[in-house]
């Protein structure tokens, strides 16, 4: 009985560690998904429009 306890505790601790690692991975996957969701959105035309106007202004000056 006395000899079994440390082993059982170790096993429990290692299982908990695996569990924690798995959970961290899961959060990581989610985090990327959250970010990528916005990355994959269509870019509003406004962005390209503003950049195009700035580019034209630059060319006129030159």
């Amino acid at each position: 009985m006395i000899e079994q306890r440390p082993t059982a505790e170790r096993r429990k601790a290692s299982a908990a560690l695996d569990e924690a690692r798995l959970r961290q991975q899961a959060i990581g996957v989610r985090l990327r998904q959250m970010f990528d969701e916005v990355v994959n959105e269509e870019v509003p035309d406004e962005f390209l429009e503003i950049l195009r106007r700035a580019d034209e202004r630059g060319s006129e000056k030159a």
Binding site: L22, R23, Q25, A26, I27, V29, R30, Q33
Partner: peptide
């Protein structure tokens, strides 16, 4: 989150 991550992975 766990269930979904499993699916995604």
């Amino acid at each position: 989150i766990l269930a979904d991550a499993e699916r995604l992975s």
